[in-house]
């Protein structure tokens, strides 16, 4: 009986993995939740007669953990910049050479020689944006382009601040305010950073990812935030302004890549080429409100994206700072600081 159950289970498992591996005309995408334009998918399905399934994750680390277990059945993933370099290093991505594909010429040259995939042999741009903060200009009337609003909060913002519940985003902002390097392992500097964070935390109300909801409900008047989310929050609270702090802010890019051993490799390549078409890239941006890194897509985008101050950076803003993954020693330091901060 026991052996029968086990063998039935095995047969079922084999049948299922077999159907995933052998199925033709399908493509399985594993992307951040609420991030894939349905219009784009329909268009792709109709153009190539391929059935697309989409599954969602909420952080790079969740995605990595699942992919590392193997046999996910997914073809396409959309990791952030530093995660692409980790996944290449770990041998999790298929070398699909997008740089030889038909539509590659549309990729903005500034997104070709990137630190996480120099020359683009594994991945192509999906969307890119910045992580800074947004503040209600009616509550605080002064100059907003400084991190002092977060780390040395003026009286009107004390207790009205939300920070992202994200170790790297909070620590990197602190390092920028103090003028120290990212991926820092200098103990004196980290000590100063820890003191700064603990002091500043007294003025923060929450540390949470749900920034749009915190801002629109009136729970906070300032929130560390991504630019696209800030634009969506502004739609409901028009006095919000996205800051470009003079001390610097984080830039990031999510990239489309193909998993090693993808069951539908050819379909995945079709998709990678498909999204480098300016018209299709514009569909991606229209859905999630971030820039896409494909030249010539602007004319197909919603007009409000072309003029949004969250997306069009002012000329005097510092360049976005793309932070590579830090080594284990630094991560261990950061973990300790983070636990101290939240104990």
């Amino acid at each position: 009986m026991k052996t029968k159950i086990i063998s039935t289970g095995l047969a079922l498992g084999l049948a299922m993995s077999g159907s995933v591996a052998l199925a033709e005309g399908t493509l399985n995408i594993y992307n951040w939740g609420n991030y894939t334009s349905p219009e784009l998918i329909t268009k792709f399905e109709e153009a190539f007669d391929i059935k697309v399934t989409i599954d969602g994750y909420d952080s790079n680390e969740t995605m990595l953990a699942k992919v590392k277990q193997g046999n996910t059945g997914y073809d396409i993933v959309v990791p952030g910049d530093y995660m692409i370099s980790i996944m290449i290093e770990q041998g999790l991505l298929e070398k699909i050479d997008p740089n030889t594909m038909e539509n590659f010429g549309n990729v903005d040259p500034k997104w070709v020689d990137v630190y996480w995939d120099p020359g683009r042999s594994y991945s192509v741009p999906w969307q890119w944006g910045t992580t800074s903060f947004v503040v209600d200009s009616e509550v605080y009337k002064g100059d907003i382009n400084t991190l002092a609003l977060i780390f040395d909060a003026p009286p009107e913002l004390k207790g009205r601040i939300n920070m992202l519940n994200d170790m790297n985003d909070v620590i990197n902002a602190g390092l920028r305010y103090l003028g120290y390097d990212r991926c820092n392992s200098n103990r004196e500097e980290l000590k100063a950073l820890t003191e700064l964070l603990i002091r500043a935390k007294a003025d923060w109300r929450t540390m949470d990812y749900s920034t749009i909801e915190k801002l629109t409900s009136g729970d906070v008047d300032l929130s560390q935030n991504w630019n696209g989310a800030s634009m969506r929050a502004r739609a409901q609270r028009p006095s919000l302004v996205y800051a470009y702090p003079k001390e610097g802010f984080t830039g990031w890019m999510d990239n489309v890549a193909v998993l090693k051993g993808a069951p539908n490799l050819e379909n995945a390549k079709l998709f990678v080429n498909f999204i480098m078409d300016p018209e299709n890239a514009a569909l991606i941006s229209n859905f999630a409100s971030y820039a896409n890194g494909i030249t010539g897509s602007a004319p197909f985008m919603k007009p409000e994206l072309g003029s949004a101050p969250e997306i069009v950076m002012p000329a005097d803003a510092p360049a976005p700072d793309f932070v590579p993954p830090c080594n284990q020693e630094v991560v261990d330091f950061y973990n300790k600081i983070w636990t101290k901060l939240k104990q």
């Binding site: 969740t62 109300r205 991560v331 983070w338």
Partner: peptide, 21 residues
């Protein structure tokens, strides 16, 4: 709780995410 302070459940959860431990 607003995420400013950890409870055990949250401490455990972050070890499998950003803390990589």
């Amino acid at each position: 709780g607003g995420g400013k302070k950890l409870m055990i459940g949250n401490l455990i959860a972050i070890q499998f995410g950003s803390s990589r431990n």
